[in-house]
Simulated assay, not measured.
Amino acid sequence: MNSYLSERVIEDILAADKSILSEVLSVNVSDLSIIDRQKIVSSGKLDLLYLCKDEILLIELKIVPFYKDIITQINNYEKDLIDLQNKNKIARSKIKKIILVVGCRESDYKSCKENNIELLVYKPEGILSRYYENFKELSTFLKIQSGDFGVVRLGLIKNSLNYLAQGLSIKEICKLEMKSEKTIRNKISVAQHLNLVSKFKANFFLTDSGNSFVELGDQILDDRLNQHQIDLISNFINENPFYSPITYTIYSLIESVFVLSKTSYPVPKDSLKDYFVKSVAKTETWRMPRARETATYIFSNYACELEYLVKVDNQFFLSPKGIQAILLLQLNRSIKLIETRN
């Protein structure tokens, strides 16, 4: 067994997530409730004490194959527990002894059976993988899939939203901007992911934030965001980094620059490209060099437009707003984890 794995790690998981323990023990998860862990008794510290229906489960965990001294160890723990029961310090329930090991021989099962011990073999890597899967199911931000819509700068959505505010249809906007319907729909999709546009049936309309975005804009139809619009979008992203694939991916790119800055600063675009693609789990989707180049180009443009990053000669610097964003991301992740574990 790899020496970098400790019993404590597996024990932490089995104490924290009884659904995994229930699978190892082949019992109903609703019947399990933890009594104690690392309980100090006369002969040492027992690993886990669980209640299952009307039985106390005395669980001795090992990350090594079975060896005979474990029988002596768990039998001593059982005697200690019986002594505590006689002193009315724990419930007078039947004690069931269970040993969890990573491997054993057929004769070991026989030795354990003679001592009224249930011997079970488990795989630590299976426990670790299942814990992550359970954690991922609870953690919404881990399910977010990154994606781009071919809109290379956020400023390009400005004119389309101005037209949408006037009540124009997609086809009318296409004529005015002389763009294809796909291009206009992509712009509106980006705006949706930034909470600027919503959709009801087949119709698009501006949200409250979208109306503010248009009102804060200059009357001149151009493709640049002004400071008020930059602040509106960046404030929303700071408060809602996991709102959509676009908000998540902007933050992921900023975080990638932050991580790489520990090695080299400013961060070269070529270094950022590969790390960023891996960080958002897009190594397969953005497999071709051109796709990776385009995705990094688009989202670094967004981050620079919103003043999280500064780009000089294909090298990236973190702005004060970018450093603040990193701190807010860590805070938001922690809040999400607390919310999902309750």
Rank of each mutant, 00 (worst) to 15 (best):
V310A: 15
K282N: 02
I326F: 00
V64H: 04
Y132D: 01
K179C: 13
G147E: 08
L142M: 11
E60A: 07
L154D: 10
L119T: 13
S146G: 15
A15L: 01
Q38F: 04
L328H: 01
K110G: 12
N332P: 06
I338N: 14
Y265L: 04
Q219W: 05
Q166Y: 13
P241C: 12
T247E: 07
L81G: 08
P289W: 05
L84P: 11
L225K: 02
G147I: 07
K18W: 12
N86R: 11
M1F: 00
Y163M: 12
V41H: 07
Y248C: 14
S43C: 11
Q229Y: 04
S146R: 07
I40E: 11
N195H: 13
A303N: 11
L61P: 13
A325I: 01
L81W: 08
D208I: 09
G103A: 15
E215L: 08
H228R: 09
F200D: 14
L168M: 15
I144P: 07
E118G: 09
L14N: 07
S300D: 13
R92F: 04
D83K: 09
L156S: 14
K171R: 15
T72V: 02
T247R: 06
S198A: 11
L318D: 12
A303K: 11
D223W: 07
S169W: 12
S22L: 09
I74R: 09
L46G: 04
Y275C: 03
F299M: 10
L168S: 10
R290S: 14
S234A: 06
S234V: 00
A91Q: 13
D274A: 05
K136A: 08
L120W: 11
I188V: 08
V190F: 02
Q192Y: 04
P268R: 02
K113G: 12
E106C: 10
Q166W: 12
L176V: 12
S334P: 00
L14A: 02
F276D: 08
L51I: 10
T283A: 03
L272F: 07
D148F: 12
F66A: 02
A202H: 14
E78G: 02
L21M: 15
L331H: 01
D80I: 06
L51C: 03
S319G: 07
G155N: 10
V101P: 14
S212W: 00
I157G: 09
D222L: 05
H228K: 09
I323H: 04
I90G: 09
S3K: 01
S93W: 10
G44I: 04
S42E: 13
V214Q: 03
K45Q: 11
A91I: 01
I95W: 05
C104A: 15
E106M: 11
I13P: 00
P268G: 03
K282Q: 06
K187R: 15
L168G: 07
A15G: 00
Q315A: 14
F276R: 06
D17K: 09
D218M: 01
I250F: 07
A325H: 00
